[in-house]
Amino acid sequence: MNLTLRVWRQPSASAEGRLVTYEVTDVSPDMSFLEMLDVLNERLILAGEEPIAFDHDCREGICGACGMVINGVPHGPQKATTTCQLHMRHFSDGDTITIEPWRSQAFPVIKDLVVDRSAFDRIIAAGGYISAPTGSAPEAHSIPVPKANADAAFEAAACIGCGACVAACPNGSAMLFTAAKVTHLGLLPQGQPERYTRVVDMVAAHDAEGFGGCTNTGECAAACPKGIPLETISRLNRDYLQATLRRH
């Protein structure tokens, strides 16, 4: 099939960007979206043009590196699917596809579709962990974890840190990302000692990075390729309010 792409091109962080139109021919429906871009990039290189820069790595939907807004939807039209796992069979011949980077103050564009998501790392560094220095661990079976809690913790821990939630949120909030980690660790017995300091510190880091506040529109959970539930945000709010009412 043949497609028309409108791709955001921006040479560097400080440069102006714009949408540039490209025609791509002979696209196979079995190609992944990124393979389709690979084909276009090969052509651009041979024509002496700069290829389109985009982040990607595992191409299995788990590393969280890839991500672009495809026709206004982070990671494109298929539910619960990262860009690398999106296949061209979900498009039709003659389609025009608009491709933009994540738009967020906290994720500045580095080049074309590549953005800087280090703000996420700083949110985790602020408290998204259980302090368990190597060697200090007790025998694994000394603390049983109810299966329901373990499963719910896993569900939240499945976050790949891609940033689609931020890209989708009308407020540019990273609350789903933050809440996923708060939920994962807060549901496990090992996570209890730091449960309340963790949520306060992580929310403070979230706000300091310039992300917007959550207004419960649910766009994040709809865009999340890993299906992190919106309920995690409720849990974050609960823990946060308990923490602030309790501590002082």
Binding site: I130, A132, P144, V145, A150, F154, H184, L185, Q190
Partner: peptide, 8 residues
């Protein structure tokens, strides 16, 4: 101890 949610 780190909170890895292994299957249970």
């Amino acid at each position: 101890a780190q909170g890895v949610p292994f299957a249970r």
